[in-house]
């Protein structure tokens, strides 16, 4: 267990080029510190899976040229407007976008966590999404033909789930509270890498109030302590998004040159979070 606790830079080293990496949306737990380390180490050809969407984290990794494939229900910066580097990459055709829909991503991960090959999902039929997915097929309900057709989505098995959480203990237990999409990610992925605001000197599973919101260490391969590790996006219960910084990102990410200068200033030469 001695290697369990490491640094965000080491986590980035252990995410190989081409890996399928599941990411949480900006309102959940984003390990932005590891995303910056991935950019710094020059990661390539990543296959990002938004659970079910990505935001600034995805936009930045795409802009830095780390991403070959993006599998997601959406790329959203919420109130901040369209995601500039994603839009530019989509327009240039420099990334392969696998367009999905939130419940199909959740269901694909649920299939993986159960170790089964697929999961039936309602709806979707009549959407053009279906025409472009060879990992989704329509089927009838084998128990009741009157039920109408269903879509079967293939299991989604990420190589790595990468998340940021408020607390981790030295056994690798990770407290996520009610943000249980991260529990699903950890169950479904082969390995889970975590950064945490604080290392808790105790056993998170021993606390009955915390245990239900805790990812057990059995799923977690490596973790790093990283205060403000989600900056500049927020972390539930801890801090909000750094509004001024995100606006500056948006402004600079509108052009290739501006984005390059952003990376130079905040990623390659990291500054401490405010």
């Amino acid at each position: 267990m001695s290697e369990l606790v490491t640094s965000a830079e080491d986590l980035a080293e252990r995410i190989p080029d081409g890996a399928k990496v599941a990411l949480a949306p900006d309102y959940s737990g984003c390990s932005m510190v590891t995303a910056r380390a991935l950019i710094s180490r020059g990661a390539k050809n990543l296959h990002l899976i938004g659970v079910p969407s990505v935001g600034f984290q995805g936009d930045m990794l795409i802009g830095a040229g780390c991403v070959k494939t993006l599998e997601t229900a959406a790329v959203t910066l919420d109130e901040y407007g369209p995601a500039p580097r994603f839009m530019a990459a989509a327009k240039a055709g420099s990334i392969n976008v696998i367009d999905g829909t939130c419940p199909a991503i959740h269901s694909g991960l649920q299939a993986a966590e159960k170790g089964i090959p697929f999961m039936p999902v309602r709806g979707i039929i009549g959407s053009d999404l279906l025409e472009h997915r060879d990992d989704w097929i329509t089927s009838t309900d084998p128990f009741d033909e009157q039920d109408g057709p269903l879509v079967l989505v293939k299991a989604i098995r990420p190589d790595i789930a990468l998340i940021h959480a408020p607390l981790a203990d030295r056994n690798g237990n990770i407290w996520i509270g009610v943000r249980r999409e991260m529990m699903l990610m950890a169950h479904a992925a082969r390995e889970t890498f975590v950064t945490a605001e604080e290392i808790y000197d105790g056993d998170l599973l021993a606390d009955e109030a915390r245990a239900p919101g805790t990812i057990p260490g059995l799923y977690v391969s490596a973790l790093a302590e990283a205060a403000s590790g989600a900056w500049p996006v927020g972390l539930f219960g801890r801090y909000g998004p750094d509004d001024a910084h995100l606006r500056e990102y948006l402004e600079r990410a509108r052009t290739d040159e501006g984005f390059a200068s952003y990376l130079e200033e905040f990623v390659y030469t990291p500054r401490a979070a405010k």
Partner: peptide
Amino acid sequence: PGSFGSAYL
């Protein structure tokens, strides 16, 4: 941005 949950909801 993408379809979000629309294809289901």
